[in-house]
Design a binder for these strands. Structure first.
Lengths: 156, 156
DNA sequence: TATTGTTATACTCTATAACTATA
DNA sequence: TATAGTTATAGAGTATAACAATA
């Protein structure tokens, strides 16, 4: 036994892994169902959840390339092309050539895009906000605390 | 002023609502991205996350009608028809006529379906489990605690 | 007439593979 | 030759509307 893991260590890792597997099993369907429900809450049918999320990232993080945005949103570049085409058709984002690299493109939220986010936030979030408001203060705090965890899980 | 809400009460509700709206704004994109990533982790390409979730519900809760299952999974009945057709084609669920009501159908996980879940759980959950195992014990506890909250949000 | 389930249809989301332009 | 982006194509997921069978 070269690395000679201690029995305690081995037992511990095994427990963590089975615990994690069980957590994955219960967490995954819940995430799936909640996302499905949220996705269907369309106040303005023309801008979907996918489009809005990309637009928000662009507005929050500033101009970037389509590839970089695809990385943020965890989609493949061709998917982002589609998303950006729709947002651009609505005048919510703009494309400009990259100053140095002729292959790249710089995408940015337009003023209309930012205005859209501000307006939409109230109407669009109404469904989820209303439900969140029904929770206790402590429950909202719990959700607020795990949000970065969700991002870390998606990013790893 | 008939109901005469107290100024303090009014202020409090407003604060809760704006806090909830802000939480919705940050939580929603994170849920979307994580679900997108989880959905793409396909070990066995033939059974997708949507199919597996329905199958698991059926195995856990026992036989039920397609309409009832649609309600559980938060999809519309025609969507569940599609899901069940795929599961049935794979022999993972079975349809039987309802003993009393000729309009209804009873859907159940088959033995093969249950065996599939047991086998798949390890491989399928590997991606998420591995990442969950990297979190601290406390972080996993937090996630475990909010899972029922996610279900309540989806159900309300 | 109301309910359950299915079929028909359409649209969004998303991926992989192949192509174009630039570095 | 490698990289950034796009186009082409395909499949999954899901909805609404219309229909059939049964209550």
């Amino acid at each position: 036994m070269t690395t000679a893991p201690s029995p305690a260590g081995a037992r511990r890792r095994s427990r963590v892994e089975s615990e994690a597997a069980e957590l994955a099993s219960i967490l995954r369907p819940s995430l799936l169902r909640l996302t499905r429900v949220i996705r269907n809450q369309r106040v303005d049918l023309s801008v979907t959840l996918t489009l809005l999320a990309a637009l928000m990232t662009l507005a929050n993080r500033g101009p970037m390339s389509p590839g970089e945005l695809a990385g943020h949103e965890r989609v493949q570049p061709p998917s982002m092309t589609t998303i950006l085409a729709k947002l651009e058709a609505k005048g919510l984002v703009s494309r400009s050539p990259h100053p140095q690299d002729g292959r790249q493109v710089v995408v940015a939220a337009t003023d209309a895009g930012r205005a859209f986010i501000a307006k939409e936030r109230q109407a669009r979030d109404a469904w989820l906000s209303t439900r969140l408001a029904r929770l206790s203060e402590d429950e909202r705090r719990q959700l607020r605390e795990i949000q970065p965890l969700l991002d870390r899980l998606a990013a790893l």
